[in-house]
Design a protein around this nucleic acid. Structure first.
Length: 273
DNA sequence: CTAACTACCTGAACGC
DNA sequence: TGCGTTCAGGTAGTTA
C-alpha cells in the first residue's frame, strides 16, 4: 500500500487528532511483528512525524511509537464510517487499537499483517534496520543531488532495486520508482547512472512525490486515508500498472518485467540502460 | 560490506 | 461453479 505520499497523507489526517493527546489504553492482537505497546500507555503524543514510510509518534518519557503500514495497513477512528458508509465494527482484520484521553479510539487494520507497531527509546532504531539506515527525506534540503549521484556511482546494483532499498533516498516504493525512472528516461535495469541522469532522477523523484502528496496518494487497492477516502493520484500514473499501453512520450508499448522480485513497468523505447 | 534470494501473510483476479 | 495459480503499494533474515 503505502509509500511516502500515502504515509504523509495519513500523517496529515492523524496529526491534529493525536498531537497533545495521551494514550490511556492499548490493545493489540498477539503478533510477532508488534513490539511491546504497553510502554505507550500513559504517555502523551507530543508530535506525529514521518521519515520515509514510517510514522513516528514522539511520546513523553523519551519514547517513540513507530508505525509502519506494511502493504495493507490503514488507520481509522473507531466507529467512524467512510464516505461509502462502510465501517470496521467487528472487522476481523483490525489488529490494534489505541484509546486516547478524549475518548476516541484509533484502530489499525492490516489484512496481510506486514505492518509494524512498536515502542522504542526515542531515536533508537536498532530493532528496525531499514529505519536505522534510511536515506534523506526526498523533499528536504538533506536530499542533495551531488550526494545522490555519488551514491549511485558507489553501488553496483541496478538502479531500481537500489532505490527500493531506502538507502539513497527515503520513501520511494514500487509505484514511484517506476514513475520517477520513466520521467528521468532511465531504465530500471541501469547499473551506471552518470551525473546528468542522476540529476534528472533526483528531480523526477521530487516532482513525482510532491505531486502525489498534493493528490493525497495513489489508491490501487487497499490504501485509504483515515476518513476512508481514496487518493487521487492513480489517474496520473504514466508507468506503474500500464503494461502494454503506449508510452506517453514515444509510443512504444510499455513492458513489464520482474526485477528484484518486484513487478516493474517501463518503456523499452526511451528509458535507456 | 553488498547484493540477491526467500520468507512472511491474505485476498482478489484470472485461467481452465 | 470450483479449483489451482499468480500477483499485490514492504521489509527482514539468510546466503553467497
Amino acid at each position: 500500500m503505502p509509500e511516502l505520499p500515502e504515509v504523509e497523507s495519513v500523517r496529515r489526517h492523524l496529526a491534529p487528532r493525536l498531537e497533545g493527546r495521551a494514550i490511556v489504553a492499548v490493545w493489540s492482537a498477539p503478533q510477532e511483528r508488534f513490539g511491546v505497546l504497553d510502554d505507550a500507555v500513559g504517555r502523551r503524543i507530543n508530535a506525529l512525524g514521518r521519515r520515509g514510510k514510517y510514522l513516528l509518534a514522539d511520546l513523553s518519557g523519551d519514547l517513540e511509537l513507530v508505525l509502519h503500514l506494511g502493504m495493507t495497513g490503514a488507520f481509522r477512528f473507531h466507529g467512524e464510517r467512510a464516505a461509502d458508509g462502510s465501517a470496521w465494527l467487528g472487522d476481523p482484520y483490525v489488529r490494534a487499537s489505541f484509546t486516547l484521553d478524549d475518548g476516541s479510539v484509533l484502530d489499525f487494520r492490516d489484512v496481510r499483517r506486514f505492518g509494524r507497531l512498536t515502542v522504542v527509546p526515542r531515536g533508537d532504531y536498532t530493532a528496525i534496520p531499514t529505519l536505522a539506515q534510511l536515506g534523506p527525506e526526498p523533499l528536504s534540503e538533506q536530499f542533495d543531488a551531488a550526494d545522490f549521484y555519488a551514491a549511485l556511482r558507489r553501488t553496483r546494483a541496478a538502479v531500481k532495486p537500489f532505490l527500493l532499498s531506502q538507502r539513497p533516498v527515503a520513501g520511494v516504493g514500487n509505484i514511484y520508482a517506476d514513475e520517477a525512472l520513466w520521467r528521468a528516461r532511465i531504465s530500471p535495469l541501469a547499473r551506471r547512472v552518470g551525473r546528468e541522469r542522476a540529476q534528472r532522477l533526483w528531480a523526477a523523484i521530487r516532482v513525482v512525490l510532491a505531486d502525489a502528496i498534493e493528490r493525497e496518494g495513489t489508491t490501487f487497492r487497499d490504501y485509504q486515508m483515515v476518513n476512508g477516502q481514496s487518493g487521487r493520484n492513480a489517474a496520473f500514473l504514466v508507468a506503474y500498472g500500464k503494461r502494454g499501453s503506449p508510452c506517453a512520450r514515444c509510443g512504444t508499448p510499455l513492458a513489464k518485467i520482474v526485477l528484484g522480485g518486484r513487478g516493474t513497468t517501463y518503456c523499452p523505447g526511451c528509458q535507456r540502460y
